[in-house]
Amino acid sequence: MRKCQSVEWRLSAYLDGQLQPTDRAAVEAHLRECPKCAAMLRAMRVGVEALRSMRTTEVSDAFWQRLRERLPQEKPTGWQRWVTALRWGWTERQQAACRRLAAAAIGVVILIGSWTGVKNYQGRVAAEQYAEQCAERHSLYLVHQPFGDATALSGGLSE
């Protein structure tokens, strides 16, 4: 029984002529003695030969036409093409699109930088103008109300 199991396991390889000579001889010796394993091999051989003799099937004549009609609807979407490009490299159109995208990105960066610079400049100018105005008003205030400060100063001294 154990021998049958070990031989059965090799019948498939035996059928294909893929056993080493010693293994093949052992299997053949067992097959001469064991009708059960010999019958198994014959049934296996008949089945395999029948499989190999089956006629080859072919698709219908309209196969490509039908397939062609299905393809456009199921073509890769835009993002799938980009994922493909990331994995497999860019097409010329995608390279051109990348160049345009990069140029646009650089333009945006320059624009933002310029706008920020202008804003900062405007801010600095406004602050300077304000400081100048304050200084000017303060000087005018001292000229027109000289005693206010002097009283406060003298009061402070008398104490």
């Binding site: 396991w9 498939s12 198994m40």
Partner: peptide, 8 residues
């Protein structure tokens, strides 16, 4: 092997 054995 299993497929051929089943077939047989």
């Amino acid at each position: 092997f299993n497929a051929r054995a089943e077939l047989a």
